[in-house]
Protein backbone atom coordinates (compact mmCIF):
# COMPACT_ATOMS: atom_id res chain seq x y z
CA UNK A 1 0.00 0.00 0.00
CA UNK A 2 2.60 2.51 1.13
CA UNK A 3 4.96 1.44 -1.63
CA UNK A 4 2.24 1.98 -4.17
CA UNK A 5 1.30 5.47 -3.07
CA UNK A 6 5.00 6.38 -2.97
CA UNK A 7 5.38 5.27 -6.56
CA UNK A 8 2.35 7.35 -7.49
CA UNK A 9 3.75 10.42 -5.80
CA UNK A 10 7.07 9.91 -7.55
CA UNK A 11 5.29 9.61 -10.89
CA UNK A 12 3.26 12.74 -10.27
CA UNK A 13 6.41 14.68 -9.36
CA UNK A 14 8.12 13.41 -12.50
CA UNK A 15 5.24 14.38 -14.76
CA UNK A 16 4.93 17.82 -13.16
CA UNK A 17 8.67 18.39 -13.45
CA UNK A 18 8.60 17.38 -17.12
CA UNK A 19 5.64 19.65 -17.75
CA UNK A 20 7.32 22.52 -15.92
CA UNK A 21 10.49 22.03 -17.94
CA UNK A 22 8.52 21.87 -21.15
CA UNK A 23 6.71 25.13 -20.40
CA UNK A 24 9.90 26.81 -19.21
CA UNK A 25 11.71 25.72 -22.34
CA UNK A 26 8.96 27.18 -24.44
CA UNK A 27 8.22 30.49 -22.77
CA UNK A 28 11.25 31.59 -20.78
CA UNK A 29 14.08 33.74 -22.11
CA UNK A 30 17.52 32.21 -22.74
CA UNK A 31 18.98 33.63 -19.55
CA UNK A 32 16.37 31.94 -17.39
CA UNK A 33 16.66 28.72 -19.36
CA UNK A 34 20.36 28.80 -18.72
CA UNK A 35 19.73 29.02 -14.97
CA UNK A 36 17.43 26.03 -15.23
CA UNK A 37 20.13 24.13 -17.10
CA UNK A 38 22.67 25.08 -14.51
CA UNK A 39 20.32 23.91 -11.74
CA UNK A 40 20.04 20.50 -13.35
CA UNK A 41 23.80 20.25 -13.67
CA UNK A 42 24.26 21.27 -10.05
CA UNK A 43 21.77 18.60 -8.98
CA UNK A 44 24.06 16.02 -10.59
CA UNK A 45 27.11 17.63 -9.03
CA UNK A 46 25.57 17.90 -5.59
CA UNK A 47 24.42 14.30 -5.60
CA UNK A 48 27.73 12.97 -6.85
CA UNK A 49 29.60 14.79 -4.11
CA UNK A 50 27.04 13.75 -1.53
CA UNK A 51 27.63 10.12 -2.47
CA UNK A 52 31.30 10.52 -1.62
CA UNK A 53 31.17 12.95 1.29
CA UNK A 54 27.73 12.41 2.75
CA UNK A 55 26.96 8.77 2.18
CA UNK A 56 30.34 7.10 2.33
CA UNK A 57 31.87 9.58 4.77
CA UNK A 58 34.99 10.27 2.73
CA UNK A 59 36.21 13.80 2.31
CA UNK A 60 36.90 14.74 -1.28
CA UNK A 61 37.64 18.22 -2.53
CA UNK A 62 38.37 17.27 -6.11
CA UNK A 63 35.10 17.90 -7.92
CA UNK A 64 36.35 20.85 -9.98
CA UNK A 65 39.19 18.70 -11.28
CA UNK A 66 36.93 15.83 -12.33
CA UNK A 67 34.55 18.31 -13.94
CA UNK A 68 37.45 19.78 -15.88
CA UNK A 69 38.32 16.35 -17.21
CA UNK A 70 34.70 15.78 -18.24
CA UNK A 71 34.34 19.21 -19.80
CA UNK A 72 37.48 18.86 -21.89
CA UNK A 73 36.56 15.34 -22.92
CA UNK A 74 33.21 16.50 -24.25
CA UNK A 75 34.73 19.65 -25.75
CA UNK A 76 37.38 17.79 -27.68
CA UNK A 77 35.21 14.85 -28.70
CA UNK A 78 32.17 16.78 -29.93
CA UNK A 79 33.84 19.75 -31.56
CA UNK A 80 33.61 19.69 -35.37
CA UNK A 81 36.86 19.04 -37.21
CA UNK A 82 37.02 22.49 -38.82
CA UNK A 83 36.35 24.17 -35.49
CA UNK A 84 39.25 22.20 -34.01
CA UNK A 85 41.56 23.52 -36.71
CA UNK A 86 40.49 27.07 -35.87
CA UNK A 87 40.94 26.54 -32.13
CA UNK A 88 44.32 24.92 -32.27
CA UNK A 89 46.17 27.60 -34.25
CA UNK A 90 49.13 27.80 -31.87
CA UNK A 91 49.86 24.12 -32.15
CA UNK A 92 47.78 21.55 -34.01
CA UNK A 93 45.80 19.05 -31.98
CA UNK A 94 47.29 15.60 -31.53
CA UNK A 95 46.56 13.61 -34.71
CA UNK A 96 44.44 10.88 -33.14
CA UNK A 97 41.88 13.45 -31.96
CA UNK A 98 41.98 15.71 -35.01
CA UNK A 99 39.28 13.89 -36.92
CA UNK A 100 36.93 12.70 -34.21
CA UNK A 101 33.48 14.15 -33.93
CA UNK A 102 31.26 12.26 -31.58
CA UNK A 103 27.64 12.61 -30.63
CA UNK A 104 26.80 14.10 -27.25
CA UNK A 105 25.72 10.91 -25.51
CA UNK A 106 28.87 8.87 -26.19
CA UNK A 107 30.96 11.94 -25.40
CA UNK A 108 29.22 12.35 -22.03
CA UNK A 109 29.82 8.69 -21.30
CA UNK A 110 33.47 9.04 -22.17
CA UNK A 111 33.64 12.13 -19.95
CA UNK A 112 32.28 10.15 -17.00
CA UNK A 113 34.50 7.15 -17.63
CA UNK A 114 37.69 9.15 -17.98
CA UNK A 115 36.87 11.15 -14.85
CA UNK A 116 36.19 7.90 -12.99
CA UNK A 117 39.46 6.47 -14.29
CA UNK A 118 41.37 9.44 -12.89
CA UNK A 119 39.33 9.17 -9.71
CA UNK A 120 40.53 5.61 -9.23
CA UNK A 121 44.07 6.62 -10.12
CA UNK A 122 44.08 9.36 -7.47
CA UNK A 123 41.87 7.59 -4.98
CA UNK A 124 43.36 4.11 -4.92
CA UNK A 125 46.70 4.98 -3.34
CA UNK A 126 45.26 7.34 -0.72
CA UNK A 127 42.06 5.48 0.14
CA UNK A 128 44.21 2.86 1.81
CA UNK A 129 45.22 5.57 4.26
CA UNK A 130 42.90 7.62 6.45
CA UNK A 131 40.45 10.05 4.94
CA UNK A 132 42.41 13.24 5.55
CA UNK A 133 44.76 12.17 2.81
CA UNK A 134 41.94 11.97 0.30
CA UNK A 135 41.04 15.62 0.92
CA UNK A 136 44.63 16.70 0.40
CA UNK A 137 45.20 14.48 -2.62
CA UNK A 138 42.00 15.49 -4.41
CA UNK A 139 42.53 19.16 -3.66
CA UNK A 140 46.06 18.92 -5.04
CA UNK A 141 44.85 16.97 -8.04
CA UNK A 142 42.20 19.55 -8.89
CA UNK A 143 44.80 22.30 -8.85
CA UNK A 144 47.38 20.28 -10.76
CA UNK A 145 44.94 19.35 -13.51
CA UNK A 146 44.44 23.07 -14.24
CA UNK A 147 48.16 23.57 -14.57
CA UNK A 148 48.43 20.49 -16.75
CA UNK A 149 45.58 21.60 -19.02
CA UNK A 150 47.17 25.02 -19.31
CA UNK A 151 50.35 23.44 -20.62
CA UNK A 152 49.16 20.60 -22.82
CA UNK A 153 48.79 22.88 -25.83
CA UNK A 154 48.23 20.18 -28.43
CA UNK A 155 45.63 18.35 -26.34
CA UNK A 156 43.65 21.06 -24.56
CA UNK A 157 44.77 24.18 -26.42
CA UNK A 158 46.37 25.43 -23.20
CA UNK A 159 45.37 28.72 -21.65
CA UNK A 160 43.42 29.68 -24.79
CA UNK A 161 40.81 27.12 -23.89
CA UNK A 162 38.26 25.68 -26.29
CA UNK A 163 35.74 27.80 -28.16
CA UNK A 164 32.87 26.73 -30.32
CA UNK A 165 31.91 23.54 -28.51
CA UNK A 166 28.51 22.55 -29.92
CA UNK A 167 25.69 23.70 -27.64
CA UNK A 168 24.11 20.33 -27.17
CA UNK A 169 23.09 20.93 -23.58
CA UNK A 170 19.45 21.86 -23.24
CA UNK A 171 16.89 21.44 -20.52
CA UNK A 172 16.27 17.83 -21.47
CA UNK A 173 19.92 16.89 -21.29
CA UNK A 174 20.72 18.70 -18.06
CA UNK A 175 17.63 17.46 -16.25
CA UNK A 176 17.67 14.08 -17.95
CA UNK A 177 21.14 13.45 -16.61
CA UNK A 178 20.05 14.78 -13.21
CA UNK A 179 17.20 12.30 -13.24
CA UNK A 180 19.50 9.42 -14.16
CA UNK A 181 21.82 10.44 -11.34
CA UNK A 182 18.96 10.55 -8.84
CA UNK A 183 17.76 7.19 -10.04
CA UNK A 184 21.23 5.64 -9.92
CA UNK A 185 22.08 6.90 -6.46
CA UNK A 186 18.62 6.13 -5.13
CA UNK A 187 18.81 2.48 -6.13
CA UNK A 188 22.47 2.24 -5.25
CA UNK A 189 21.66 3.36 -1.71
CA UNK A 190 18.64 1.09 -1.49
CA UNK A 191 20.73 -1.93 -2.34
CA UNK A 192 23.30 -3.69 -0.27
CA UNK A 193 26.35 -1.91 -1.70
CA UNK A 194 24.91 1.48 -0.77
CA UNK A 195 24.11 0.18 2.69
CA UNK A 196 27.73 -0.94 2.95
CA UNK A 197 28.82 2.62 2.09
CA UNK A 198 26.63 3.90 4.92
CA UNK A 199 28.10 1.30 7.24
CA UNK A 200 31.59 2.53 6.39
CA UNK A 201 30.50 6.08 7.11
CA UNK A 202 29.05 5.04 10.45
CA UNK A 203 31.86 2.87 11.76
CA UNK A 204 34.80 1.60 9.75
CA UNK A 205 35.92 -0.95 12.33
CA UNK A 206 32.47 -2.47 12.65
CA UNK A 207 32.02 -2.43 8.87
CA UNK A 208 35.30 -4.26 8.36
CA UNK A 209 34.42 -6.79 11.02
CA UNK A 210 31.15 -7.50 9.19
CA UNK A 211 33.17 -8.50 6.16
CA UNK A 212 33.03 -5.26 4.19
CA UNK A 213 36.23 -4.58 2.28
CA UNK A 214 36.76 -0.89 3.04
CA UNK A 215 39.15 -0.19 0.22
CA UNK A 216 37.03 -1.79 -2.48
CA UNK A 217 33.86 -0.03 -1.39
CA UNK A 218 35.49 3.35 -0.93
CA UNK A 219 37.07 3.19 -4.37
CA UNK A 220 33.74 2.13 -5.82
CA UNK A 221 31.82 4.99 -4.24
CA UNK A 222 34.52 7.47 -5.17
CA UNK A 223 34.61 6.28 -8.78
CA UNK A 224 30.83 6.65 -9.11
CA UNK A 225 31.03 10.15 -7.67
CA UNK A 226 33.81 11.07 -10.10
CA UNK A 227 31.88 9.58 -13.00
CA UNK A 228 28.91 11.86 -12.43
CA UNK A 229 31.18 14.83 -11.78
CA UNK A 230 32.77 14.19 -15.18
CA UNK A 231 29.40 13.91 -16.89
CA UNK A 232 28.28 17.16 -15.26
CA UNK A 233 31.48 18.82 -16.44
CA UNK A 234 30.65 17.62 -19.94
CA UNK A 235 27.16 19.11 -19.70
CA UNK A 236 28.73 22.36 -18.55
CA UNK A 237 30.97 22.40 -21.64
CA UNK A 238 27.96 21.71 -23.87
CA UNK A 239 26.08 24.54 -22.23
CA UNK A 240 28.78 27.20 -22.21
CA UNK A 241 30.37 26.40 -25.56
CA UNK A 242 33.61 27.87 -24.26
CA UNK A 243 35.87 26.45 -21.59
CA UNK A 244 39.30 27.25 -20.23
CA UNK A 245 41.36 25.81 -17.38
CA UNK A 246 40.66 28.71 -15.04
CA UNK A 247 36.95 27.97 -14.89
CA UNK A 248 37.68 24.94 -12.77
CA UNK A 249 38.99 26.57 -9.65
CA UNK A 250 38.48 25.43 -6.09
CA UNK A 251 35.55 27.86 -5.74
CA UNK A 252 33.58 25.57 -8.03
CA UNK A 253 34.12 22.65 -5.65
CA UNK A 254 33.19 24.98 -2.86
CA UNK A 255 29.81 25.79 -4.47
CA UNK A 256 29.04 22.09 -4.65
CA UNK A 257 30.11 21.57 -1.06
CA UNK A 258 27.72 24.33 -0.08
CA UNK A 259 24.90 22.52 -1.88
CA UNK A 260 25.76 19.27 -0.12
CA UNK A 261 25.98 20.79 3.34
CA UNK A 262 22.82 22.83 2.87
CA UNK A 263 20.93 19.89 1.43
CA UNK A 264 22.10 17.57 4.14
CA UNK A 265 24.86 15.01 4.20
CA UNK A 266 23.44 11.77 2.88
CA UNK A 267 20.17 13.36 1.72
CA UNK A 268 19.01 12.93 -1.86
CA UNK A 269 15.88 15.09 -1.74
CA UNK A 270 17.56 17.83 0.24
CA UNK A 271 20.44 17.96 -2.22
CA UNK A 272 18.10 18.38 -5.18
CA UNK A 273 16.30 21.26 -3.52
CA UNK A 274 19.44 22.96 -2.30
CA UNK A 275 21.11 22.60 -5.73
CA UNK A 276 18.26 24.56 -7.30
CA UNK A 277 18.18 27.16 -4.53
CA UNK A 278 21.93 27.72 -4.52
CA UNK A 279 22.06 28.02 -8.31
CA UNK A 280 19.27 30.55 -8.38
CA UNK A 281 20.76 32.47 -5.44
CA UNK A 282 24.13 32.46 -7.13
CA UNK A 283 22.56 34.33 -10.03
CA UNK A 284 20.29 36.50 -7.91
CA UNK A 285 23.22 37.66 -5.82
CA UNK A 286 25.32 38.48 -8.84
CA UNK A 287 24.74 42.18 -8.13
CA UNK A 288 26.97 41.84 -5.08
CA UNK A 289 29.99 41.51 -7.35
CA UNK A 290 29.08 44.58 -9.37
CA UNK A 291 29.36 48.26 -8.71
CA UNK A 292 26.45 49.64 -6.76
CA UNK A 293 25.05 53.12 -6.77
CA UNK A 294 22.96 53.66 -3.70
CA UNK A 295 22.39 57.36 -4.49
CA UNK A 296 24.23 58.82 -1.55
CA UNK A 297 27.09 56.35 -1.63
CA UNK A 298 28.79 54.50 -4.44
CA UNK A 299 30.32 51.09 -3.92
CA UNK A 300 32.93 49.86 -6.32
CA UNK A 301 32.35 46.34 -7.51
CA UNK A 302 34.15 43.75 -5.44
CA UNK A 303 34.50 40.57 -7.46
CA UNK A 304 34.09 37.58 -5.21
CA UNK A 305 31.68 39.30 -2.84
CA UNK A 306 29.12 36.64 -3.67
CA UNK A 307 31.48 33.95 -2.55
CA UNK A 308 32.07 35.79 0.71
CA UNK A 309 28.33 35.79 1.32
CA UNK A 310 28.13 32.10 0.48
CA UNK A 311 31.06 31.28 2.71
CA UNK A 312 29.33 33.01 5.57
CA UNK A 313 26.13 31.06 4.87
CA UNK A 314 28.11 27.82 4.80
CA UNK A 315 29.83 28.58 8.08
CA UNK A 316 26.54 29.49 9.74
CA UNK A 317 24.86 26.33 8.47
CA UNK A 318 27.73 24.16 9.62
CA UNK A 319 27.67 25.79 13.05
CA UNK A 320 23.94 25.63 13.71
CA UNK A 321 23.31 22.19 12.39
CA UNK A 322 25.74 19.79 11.02
CA UNK A 323 23.07 17.83 9.20
CA UNK A 324 21.68 20.42 6.82
CA UNK A 325 18.17 21.54 5.97
CA UNK A 326 16.40 18.24 5.55
CA UNK A 327 16.64 15.76 8.35
CA UNK A 328 16.77 12.09 7.71
CA UNK A 329 13.26 10.93 8.53
CA UNK A 330 13.18 8.72 11.57
CA UNK A 331 11.91 5.23 11.06
CA UNK A 332 12.59 4.98 7.35
CA UNK A 333 11.38 1.68 6.03
CA UNK A 334 14.00 -0.59 4.57
CA UNK A 335 12.26 -2.45 1.83
CA UNK A 336 13.34 -5.14 -0.54
CA UNK A 337 12.96 -5.56 -4.25
CA UNK A 338 9.77 -7.36 -5.11
CA UNK A 339 9.90 -9.65 -8.03
Amino acid sequence: MREKSKTQITLIILVLTALGLFLANRYLDPYKIRIINLSGIYVTLGLSMNLINGMTGMFSLGHAGFMAIGAYTVGILTMPVTMKEMNFFMQPIVPFLANVEWGFLPALFAAGLIAAFFGILIGAPVLRLTDDYLAIATLGFAEIIRVVFTNTQSLTNGALGLKGIPNYTNIWWSWGVALVTVWFIWFLMKGTYGKAFLAIREDEIAARSMGINLFKHKVMSFAFGCFFAGVAGGLMAGMLGTIDPNMFRITLTFNILLIVVLGGLGQIGGTIISAVIVTVMMEALRFLDEAMDLGFVQIKGIPGMRMVVFSIILIIVVIIREKGLVRRPKGRELTYAKN
Binding site: F184, F187, G191, L198, A206, A207, S209, I212, R332
Partner: peptide, 28 residues
Protein backbone atom coordinates in the same frame (compact mmCIF):
# COMPACT_ATOMS: atom_id res chain seq x y z
CA UNK B 1 29.69 -0.53 17.68
CA UNK B 2 26.41 -0.42 15.85
CA UNK B 3 25.85 1.67 12.74
CA UNK B 4 24.27 4.30 14.94
CA UNK B 5 22.47 6.54 12.46
CA UNK B 6 21.00 3.60 10.59
CA UNK B 7 17.87 1.69 11.49
CA UNK B 8 17.75 -1.55 13.42
CA UNK B 9 16.82 -3.45 10.27
CA UNK B 10 19.52 -1.79 8.19
CA UNK B 11 22.11 -2.85 10.75
CA UNK B 12 21.20 -6.50 10.37
CA UNK B 13 20.73 -6.16 6.62
CA UNK B 14 24.29 -4.88 6.25
CA UNK B 15 25.52 -8.02 7.98
CA UNK B 16 24.37 -9.93 4.88
CA UNK B 17 26.39 -7.87 2.46
CA UNK B 18 29.54 -9.96 2.55
CA UNK B 19 27.64 -12.92 1.08
CA UNK B 20 26.15 -10.97 -1.83
CA UNK B 21 26.96 -12.49 -5.18
CA UNK B 22 25.47 -9.83 -7.46
CA UNK B 23 27.72 -7.01 -8.59
CA UNK B 24 26.90 -3.39 -7.86
CA UNK B 25 25.37 -2.69 -11.28
CA UNK B 26 22.84 -5.48 -10.91
CA UNK B 27 21.82 -3.94 -7.61
CA UNK B 28 21.27 -0.55 -9.22
Amino acid sequence: RLFGELTVLENVFIGNHLRVKSDVFSTV
